[in-house]
Nucleic acid binder design. Sequence first.
DNA 1: TTACTATATGGCAAAATTACCATATAAATA
DNA 2: TATTTATATGGTAATTTTGCCATATAGTAA
Lengths: 98, 98
Amino acid sequence: MKKEILDKYKDRSDVIKALAHPARLFMLDYLSDGEKCVCKFTEELGLDQSTVSKHLAVLKNSGLVDFEKRGLNVYYRLKCPCIMNIFGCIETVNKSEK
Amino acid sequence: MKKEILDKYKDRSDVIKALAHPARLFMLDYLSDGEKCVCKFTEELGLDQSTVSKHLAVLKNSGLVDFEKRGLNVYYRLKCPCIMNIFGCIETVNKSEK
DNA sequence: TTACTATATGGCAAAATTACCATATAAATA
DNA sequence: TATTTATATGGTAATTTTGCCATATAGTAA
C-alpha cells in the first residue's frame, strides 16, 4: 500500500481495531455510565480473568480508556465518551444490510 | 463469552471489523464524494487488484457499501454515509493518546 | 513476615486476517 | 466467434488475534 495512505490511515485503523471485538464493545458500553473495576468485567463477560485483562490492555493502548489503581482494584473508565456516538450509525448499517 | 453479550455485540463488531484496516478506511473516505470503480482504488492504493477486490467484498458484506455494474466496470458507493462521522472522535482518541 | 486477593504477563495453540499469484468470469469489441 | 478488459475467486504462506493455563506482581490483612 502506498506510504502516504498508510501514514494517513494507520493510526485511525489502530483505534478501530481496538473497537473490533464483541467483548471490548461490551466493555465500552459498560463503562458509559462510569468507571468499573476489572473483576466486574470478568463477572459479566464470563471470560477468563487473564483474557479480560488483555482486552482491557488493548483498549488502554489505543487510548480509548484510562485506569486508576485504588487498593487492590484497578478501575477503568472511558477516556473519550464520544466513542459511544458511533453505535447509532453502526446499527443503521446493520439494519440496512440485506 | 456469555451468549447474551455475544448476541448483542457480534453484529456491531462485524461492521467495525470491516472498518478496521487502513486500505478500507481510505476506500470509504475516497467514496465520500461519490461512487468510484474498482480500478480507481487499485490505482490509488498500489495494491494488487485481487487484494483490492477482496477489501471491497469485505465492505460490501458488512453493508457499508453497495455496487452497481455498468459495462465492464463495477462502481462502488457508500451505503451509510453517516459512517464518515466517526472519524472526528477517532482523531480525538489519537490526539489524547500519550 | 506470611497469606490472601486482584490484576497483569508469558507462553502457546487455534482461528482469523492479509496479500500475493494464478486463474475464472463476464461484458465489450473486433 | 475470438480477443481484450475489468473484476472476482481459489489457493496459500505469513502475520495477527484470541483465549486459556500457569505464574508473577502488588497491595492488604493477619
